[in-house]
Design a protein around this nucleic acid. Sequence first.
DNA 1: CGGTAGGCACACAGATCGGTGTACATAACA
DNA 2: TGTTATGTACACCGATCTGTGTGCCTACCG
Lengths: 203, 203
Amino acid sequence: MAELEKGPTGRRRGRGARERILGASQQLFREQGINRTGMDQLCAAAQVSKRTAYQHFTGKDELVAEYLRRFDPSVLSDVFDRTDLTPRERLLAAFDVPPNAPLCPFIAAAVELHDPEHPGSRYAREYKMAVAARLADTAREAGATDPEQLGEQLALLIDGAAARTRVLDADAFPTAAAIAAVLIDNAIPAAVGDDHPREAVSS
Amino acid sequence: MAELEKGPTGRRRGRGARERILGASQQLFREQGINRTGMDQLCAAAQVSKRTAYQHFTGKDELVAEYLRRFDPSVLSDVFDRTDLTPRERLLAAFDVPPNAPLCPFIAAAVELHDPEHPGSRYAREYKMAVAARLADTAREAGATDPEQLGEQLALLIDGAAARTRVLDADAFPTAAAIAAVLIDNAIPAAVGDDHPREAVSS
DNA sequence: CGGTAGGCACACAGATCGGTGTACATAACA
DNA sequence: TGTTATGTACACCGATCTGTGTGCCTACCG
């Protein structure tokens, strides 16, 4: 008999509570923001009693931090681990956000939490730095002269596109991708021209 | 006798209430964020009774919108109206934010208010579009081949620097300025080399 | 002098917030 | 069988939020 399904009165044992809470967080925090989502509403959406939620997380702060940690796989790995693309294509693929824009939750969290020492803010910082680092790694792989600089530049473009998309309510990633293409071509000495080769600046 | 100073019991008549409220908003909304600043605290900081505040503004929403409208002079005009700079220098001057980073309140407002139809969000959008337009104007003045595109690109860089500065707690504007310099040089056909001339892409 | 407008102090309403306390029910394990 | 986790339902706490209602007070103006 299924041991992780509900009993007659509404039990859902078997390790599912945490996951449901975090799943509801993913949806509600992103749709409504962190501060505008109360624990009552969140627990109702997760079909979890509030008491249980506070047995899994010491407080909302910890829940928020955990919620942010659930973005790594879909954002970092999916883009950088593709072996079917050249390094240069991988750098550009970071700007191909699907139309249903997830709209970077880390910037939102940093603004909403507003305390740089909040665990969520800390993790947002770590994440952004990790993205820049991975971009730099890929830039190095692509043969950029200054990979760290290019990585930081591309990271800034991504954040700019995210922020601008949020404020203007219009997709700004194509613009960012266009800038990225220019920067990448300028940063790679012997440009393996993909579509429009351009001579690099002569020292 | 001064007619806009306080009386013995704490009166401060003479047209000063609105200004003090908005002044306190400037400080508190920026330091603490909009949602984390209650009307009680704000009125106390403005030395204004809560009753008076709600006679000047129909609600917090209107106050927030008014608060955002007080940024124009210091951000838009100061940079673009400088006649002692060449158009190209003016474009780059937009990235010279003073060390005491004001840290773009429009992005913060768009995130915190979270409702695109909130008057504050509306104005944030208008403002960002106005900045891009002024950048485009200056780009046209500088002789860019596609001023609108360059304006949008530079606006994205500014937003990216602001967002990244906020998340990482480290000044990202120099990086943005470096990218801007590249874009500007690439966008102006006959580059009037300021320090490191570079040949434009040959059609 | 008296009227009026603008402001103050303060209590309060209603809602929502994060977080707990309590008593009860179920499943797994002994 | 009984014990122990794990979870539920629900009331509740204190704090804080936006926003009002009320009464008084004082500066200005005629």
